[in-house]
């Protein structure tokens, strides 16, 4: 799908190669205390940089690239802020960026991935979840979903929007076996407490 503001295929690239590492990135950022930067702000700006890249063909290791981009976002902010606590700079002197040499094949269809996604969707409010599943699993259009659920198209759009909004918060918990702590989980507006989730299945 063509997205205004994003180069062709970029949304898909982000979905496949960046979203799976966002939890690890947030975890890494959150451990760097002393920064007067919100993890969410750094992540948002990192996405803006990745969205604006002319081409991502040169990116062989999206995970390392993601971390390096976030790192440079922080450094630019640190410079802009002028007053730099020395500890802050020291923290970033030798970034122990976690590296990952796994190939993109890792993101091939896996049952683990399905389990992760289904857990996130299962947490959505009932109507949101239903609309989301009809859209994403069954592939119905929003119009068709409206007909099946007996609600207006506008309401379907709202359910989809709300569902996506909630998933934008919960998706950062990550797919891996290690639960990632994020600042997002502590903020209000988060409708589900991470603590009630099963950590293992």
């Amino acid at each position: 799908m063509k997205r205004p503001g994003l180069p062709e295929g970029r949304a898909d690239w982000l979905a496949r190669f960046v979203i799976p590492h966002e939890a690890a990135l947030r975890h890494w950022l959150a451990r760097r205390t002393g920064l007067r930067l919100e993890v969410d702000d750094v992540v948002q700006e990192t996405y803006a940089v990745l969205a604006g890249l002319e081409d991502v063909g040169h990116v062989h290791n999206p995970r390392a690239y993601l971390f390096a981009t976030a790192h440079s976002v922080i450094l630019q902010h640190v410079r802009r802020a002028q007053i730099v606590p020395i500890e802050t700079v020291a923290e970033f002197d030798h970034p122990d960026m976690p590296h990952d040499d796994l190939s993109p094949d890792r993101y091939a269809i896996s049952r683990q991935e399905l389990r992760w996604m289904s857990t996130l969707i299962a947490e959505l409010p009932a109507k949101c979840r239903e609309a989301f599943l009809l859209r994403k699993v069954e592939g119905f259009s929003q119009r068709e979903i409206a007909r099946r659920m007996g609600i207006s198209e506008n309401t379907v759009e709202k359910h989809i929007s709300k569902g996506l909004r909630l998933l934008m918060d919960t998706v950062v918990r990550g797919e891996g076996p290690r639960p990632a702590r994020t600042s997002a989980g502590k903020e209000k507006g988060q409708e589900h407490d991470a603590a009630v989730l099963p950590q293992k299945h």
């Binding site: 997205r3 970029r10 992540v43």
Partner: peptide, 10 residues
Amino acid sequence: ARACAVFGRF
């Protein structure tokens, strides 16, 4: 960009 990516992920 992130919203598109999360939506696409599913």
